[in-house]
Write a protein that binds this DNA or RNA. Structure first.
Length: 108
RNA sequence: UAAGCAGGGCGGGUGAUCGCGGUCCGGAGCAUUCCGGACUGAGGAAAGUCCGGGCUUCACAGGGCAGGAUGCCGGAUAACGUCCGGUGGAGGUGACUCCCAGGCCAGUGCAACAGAAAUAUACCGCCAGCGGCGCACGCAGGUGUGCCGCGGGUAAGGGUGAAAAGGCAGUGUAAGAGACUACCGUCUUCAUGGUAACAUGGAGAGCCAUGUAAACCCCAUCCGAAGCAAGACCGAAACGAGGACCAUGGGCUUGCCCGGCCCGUUCUCAGGUGGGUCGCUGGAGGCUGUCGGUAACGGCAGUCCAAGAUAGAUGAUCAUCCAAGACAGAACCCGGCUUACAGCCCUGCUUAUUUU
RNA sequence: GCGAUAGUAGUACAGUUGGUAGUACGCCACCUUGCCAAGGUGGAGGUCGCGAGUUCGAGCCUCGUCUAUCGCU
């Protein structure tokens, strides 16, 4: 999967995209005018120490990887972990993610 | 067996499926990239960033001042505020542990409250002398005693305080006082042992004097600055400089021509942005043996190569075993310190109890 | 990666040569008023972020540690 790298890409998504929220995640979506999707993951220092943040990032990335084909193409999507996200395992993270993309209407 | 002390080690394992970073090999491809295979992929603290060094760039004739750091002695080391071994002090029955442990007779500052007095004094007290008044004895001179006053001698005793001009016992005295004596302490000096810190012993000084230097300061030693986002190299586009080209194509200067300027095409150069490559992991390296050293550590020989990401790679699911998995994620590299940490194992030693 | 600053009452802040921790607002009680506000009087409230050390004695000095905020690249 292709990832968002530049700070400007994230800023663009925050300002021009639409946001969807649930208990564990925040998702920002905006169009990018390309064939595929690009994903960004953001976990702030408030969530925990380095080990906790890395684990949270990996859970989100794994969930995105396994469900990448279910996304409608042509979007930049940023996932932001909320503080409660550090307490959950993979399956609840997966459910949270699927819930959000269904809510946003970008699931096939 | 119980309690404890010191040192060292480990820090979940195995398998299956899907997935990620790196190196090498093979194939496709030849700017890039894709496919397959093999190997490999976080720590004891990777952490805090508290010290020290390597490396890189900049600065620099030499010296001093300022500023900072360290501080018993000897050794180890590339270096250190680290480590090792001693000395002194403190704690523990003990194994053993802990200590920023130089200098307030170079100078300056501070010591609230209480207390008479805080670095110098005399409040109460003690003591004799002189003067006055009273009482007792006495014929009287006078003697004894009490109170008051005067100028003196004292620092034993009193209470305050964290701390009151060595302690304690005796001699001595009007009362006292290192005034004198013994012991202990302090200081000076000599001898012996030790590389030294220092220890032990002898002799002397009657003892001019508190604490605080994690107060200023003094003394000795050390220190140029910044950091891999350091730095080196390659270099799109756009901008800039110079040259060449022109069917003289367009515009401006103009009534027109010449001339000049800008745009155009192309070449060279400079700076070095987006980006890329290097720095980047073979090193004060690990392990084993041996030799020197009490040890820290060092010498020699053999053997091994063990992450290198660049918005940042180790994950997910399932099965299974057990003691049910704590603290926690490399970002140029090393040596330390400090802090966090579920639990497990090994070695040596101490104390107590019991048995032989 | 490299640094800097701060932490004191519920809140915002003082606190100098180290010597009994204070100010304002807020809080509580009383007075005033028919009632409320304003005003007046009195009172409570602090492990000085935490742990060691130096000192006779630390909010203050030293070391370690935690949290928050900010800066440079």
């Amino acid at each position: 999967m292709e990832s968002l790298k530049k700070n400007a890409d994230f800023k663009n998504c925050y300002q021009n995209g639409k946001s969807y929220v649930n208990r564990h995640l925040v998702m920002y979506v905006c169009g990018n005018g390309k064939d595929g999707n690009r994903f960004g993951i953001s976990v702030s220092k408030k969530v925990g120490n380095s080990v906790v943040r890395h684990r949270t990032t990996r859970l989100i990335r794994e969930a995105v990887r396994l469900h990448e084909t279910e996304f409608l193409p042509g979007h930049d999507i940023v996932f932001v972990a909320r503080v409660r996200a550090k307490e959950i395992g993979y399956f609840r993270m997966e459910n949270a993610l699927l819930h959000l993309i269904k809510k946003a209407g970008i699931r096939k």
